[in-house]
Amino acid sequence: MRFQVFPDAASTTAVQVDWLLAFLSLVTLFFLGIIFVPMGVFLYRYRRGNPVDRTPLNISTWKIEVFWTTVPLVLTFVIFGWGAGLYVHMKTPPEDAQEIYVVGKQWMWRLQHPEGKREINALHVPVGRTVKLMITSEDVIHSFFIPVFRVKQDAVPGRYTMEWFKATKAGTYHLFCSEYCGTQHSGMIGWVTVMEPKDYQDWLNSGSPQETQIAAGERLFHQLGCSGCHAENSKVRAPSLVGLYGKPVPLEGGTIVTADERYLHDSIVMPAKQIVFGYENLMPSFEGQLNEEQLFQLVQYLKHLGREQPPEYRRQGEGAAQFIVPHEAP
């Protein structure tokens, strides 16, 4: 029987969360102490039949009340600040993160690496590289939980959520679905394998070569006829997509949104939800024609568009040539 009291900490975040938990435990012990030590003393000393002085103190109590209202209040502000700061850190992936696509489905996790490699209920990552998971679900709400990394994020149907981590210790760790998702919820588990970078590269190169996510997205982009309208020389006036990712987009009605993954995803399945200002609502919905994985490939391709191009290329005006994607394996 394996036996553990404390979980491993195998990511940069895990160490930070553990410090926070240690602090919280100290706070807990402190309060338990200042409540139960006096309580024990009172219970013993003032038990019935014990001859002690019981004359009531005639003091005003409000100063005491204010004191023990303020002290916990201030302490909670400290805890809040620490927790919130770390939370923002956990919600802010470093720029150089490698994106892995995760989709939950009753009752398994399917994952795809940018290089095209697919996994089910398993995740291989190298030590020391920041990995960002883009998570979604095909049916119900799941939750992608890796205890040793201290990260957890629900997979919500109809949208992308994100979690990131930087593994620090090679090894094999549990991966759980932690949001109840139906009959085989407890079977929706797997292993995270953290490998030394060289081993990881070997693992990546093993098996038959795969189409990268971006390449697959590009293929879909042409197959579905997206390029027909979204090229500048097209007869149909549609917004250009080059370099769109991460930029502010003005919409009909005056609001401005960021073209993030969610925006790109929704613009494909629900084009009318957010009409770009100055354009007509012409685009048909691709809902039902693509599965979540294909949608993600398209999104990855759109994110890629214009990102890898040299600066002078971007300044050359926007011709049909822009859809020629520089071929370099990401």
Binding site: Q16, V17, L21, T28, I35, F36, W82, M90, K152
Partner: peptide
Amino acid sequence: FIGLFTLGGLTGLFLATLAADIHLTDT
């Protein structure tokens, strides 16, 4: 009640703390 509620309440602080809750929620 006081003993158990106090411990229950204090562990509630863990769950109200954003970053700590991420690890502890749903467990």
